[in-house]
Simulated assay, not measured.
Amino acid sequence: MTEIHEGQRVAVLADAQNLYHTAQSIYSRNIDYSALLEKAVMGRELVRALAYVIRADSPEEESFFEALEDIGFERKIKEIKTFGDGSKKADWDVGIVLDAVTLAEKVDTLVLASGDGDFARLCSHLRHEGVRVEVFCFESSTAEELIEAADAFHDMAEREEEFLL
């Protein structure tokens, strides 16, 4: 495991869909991505910040996408898929995993902003490869296996006034 040190290279991967639904369902508020990025980097050397978003044809989503870019996130946008029965699906799990594994060679720490338990195996893999893994999310909506698989867990609920708009 890599400890925090001066000059440490860090990448931040934000699962915007997961964060949005959590913040809305618990607090009826939105995430402050600027604060999230600042706290995730903690003065270390930022290699890349990626925000994974879904285009759902919502009136305010374009301004949100632009704001992410202004803050310093690269946006990865996926179109929502609507099936014949009317159901909809869109998630970034595979894309996040591929980007994390690719970035592992270029960073000392990977910060994952998500509570999705599907990423527990990714965390274990990255740690095995010598990459420190930190997870940022709200503990009440974060899978226990994800918390256990990370080197550090930062409960955004403990500082909700910093992380929520």
Rank of each mutant, 00 (worst) to 15 (best):
Y33Q: 04
L126I: 11
L164T: 09
N18H: 04
N30D: 15
E160Y: 05
A56H: 07
F83I: 04
A35T: 12
E162N: 01
A11D: 06
D85C: 09
V53P: 00
L165F: 06
S114N: 07
T2A: 11
C123N: 07
A157T: 08
K78E: 13
H128G: 15
E3A: 14
V53F: 06
R29W: 00
V12C: 03
A143S: 15
D85A: 02
L50S: 08
Q17A: 12
K78P: 00
H154C: 07
R29I: 00
E134I: 13
E162C: 03
D32T: 02
E105S: 14
R159C: 01
Y52P: 00
K81E: 13
R132K: 13
D108S: 04
S140C: 05
A14F: 10
F64E: 03
A49M: 06
E66C: 05
S124V: 01
A67N: 14
K89F: 09
G95M: 01
A51T: 08
G130W: 03
R55L: 07
H125F: 12
R9E: 09
A51H: 05
V47E: 04
R55V: 08
E45N: 13
V101K: 02
A157M: 05
G86I: 05
A149T: 07
T82V: 15
F138N: 01
T102S: 15
L19D: 01
L165I: 05
S140W: 00
L164V: 10
A16K: 02
T142Y: 09
E69L: 05
D99W: 03
E162F: 10
M1F: 09
D70Q: 13
D70N: 13
A150V: 04
H125Q: 11
V94Y: 06
K106A: 08
L68T: 07
L37T: 09
V111D: 09
F163T: 02
I147E: 08
L46V: 12
A104Q: 07
I54C: 12
D151T: 05
D118L: 04
E160C: 01
D70E: 15
H128F: 10
A104E: 07
D85W: 07
E145P: 01
R9V: 02
F83T: 05
S141H: 07
H5Q: 11
A152H: 15
T82M: 10
I54M: 13
S58M: 13
I54A: 12
E162T: 15
G72D: 05
N30F: 12
L98F: 09
K76Q: 07
D85V: 02
L36V: 06
C137M: 13
M156A: 04
A35I: 03
A143V: 05
R55A: 10
K39I: 00
A113T: 06
E105M: 04
K106V: 01
L37F: 10
L122V: 05
A56L: 04
A113K: 09
Q17E: 09
I147A: 04
F73C: 05
H128P: 00
